[in-house]
Every structure is written in C-alpha cells, then in structure tokens.
C-alpha cells in the first residue's frame, strides 16, 4: 500500500519521533510505514488520518492507484 505519510509529516514540520509520540507507536514503526515496508492496522490508519485532519484514502492508497 502506498502512502503520503512522509509528505504530510514534512508539511507539519514533525520529526518521526514526534509523530510516533503523537500516535503512541515507536519511531521504527513510523519509519516502516513511511518506507512502505509495513501496512498499519485499520485503527492506526484511522488514527493517522484523524491526526492530519484528512480522510483515510487521502493518506493511504492501494498499489496501482493514486
């Protein structure tokens, strides 16, 4: 799954560690999501979308779309 997490994080001038604290996950998890090595669970994906004030599909897109 592709995502815009890195772009959204950069727009808000947040570090990976700061975002990890806000999402209550580890920095490694934020890094793995950004590098698309790990797809988050639905609750975490909703949490990320809510944090950036957008819809879930604005952050995550299936492979081959977007």
């Amino acid at each position: 799954m592709k995502n815009r997490l890195k772009v959204l994080r950069a727009e808000r001038d947040l570090s990976q560690a700061q975002l990890a604290d806000l999402l209550d996950v580890s920095r490694q998890t934020v890094n793995a999501i950004e590098t698309e090595k790990y797809d988050p669970s639905l609750p975490l994906a909703f949490k990320i979308a809510a944090l950036f004030g957008c819809q879930i599909e604005d952050v995550f897109q299936p492979e081959g779309q977007g």
Binding site: D24, V25, S26, Q28, T29, A32, Y38
Partner: peptide, 8 residues
C-alpha cells in the same frame, strides 16, 4: 507493551 509492528 509493544506497538502493532513490533508485536508482529
């Protein structure tokens, strides 16, 4: 106590 990815 781990997060979802670390548990995986």
């Amino acid at each position: 106590s781990l997060d979802e990815m670390q548990r995986r």
